[in-house]
Amino acid sequence: MSALTLYASDVVALARKDLRLELRARDTLPAMLLFVLSTLVVFHFALPTGTADDAAYGLLWIALIFTALLGLARAWAPEREGGALDGLVLAPCDRSAIWLGKTLAVLVFLTAAELVALPAFALFFAPVDLVAVAGVVLASIGICAVGSLLAAMAAASRGREVILPLLFLPLAIPLIVGGVGAGISPEGATYLTFLGLYDLVFAILAWATFEYVITE
């Protein structure tokens, strides 16, 4: 097998392990689904009547970001128990594969939450067009790529639940700008390009630096 096939098979094995754990314990995805729905309902009461659709788009993004945070906060929980992360660090696979596997697993959870959130949003508040959906997809990639790395950092700290949102939110601001812009601006393509660039820059950075975050 070529090096790339091996790398891909490591990534898939690691991501599949996370999905299997989630299917068994069901402690992250149901929470994310319920959270995103509850948040949208809360927003109905937080938005004064007659507010423009544009404002509702902003709230959609707040709901998505905080739902992602909920999933990210638990992302490395299986690795913390029993020192499984040390087990992965010892294995001869490329360490960036650990990051990529986790990113994919979190992306699957977040996508599932969005599959509930977007139709619900369209039903409760405002229609969602194709450009807006593309914005959600691109921003989700960025959220998971950066988020899984920051969550690994936070997992090494004492106040991990508190510290992750502090680390993550300043980095999520450009994603929110891109996502909201793709939803409400007539020039959606500009925002999609911007989101694509964000994903590229930060995915490469996270891929290259992950090893340093998990080793001593």
């Binding site: 300043p170 700008v177 909201v180 812009g181 660039l197």
Partner: peptide
């Protein structure tokens, strides 16, 4: 340092809407 230019563009884009 990666965030500085990315935020710079994001804020310019955001000021449009």
């Amino acid at each position: 340092v990666a965030l500085i230019p990315v935020s710079f563009f994001a804020i310019r884009l955001a000021s449009d809407f």
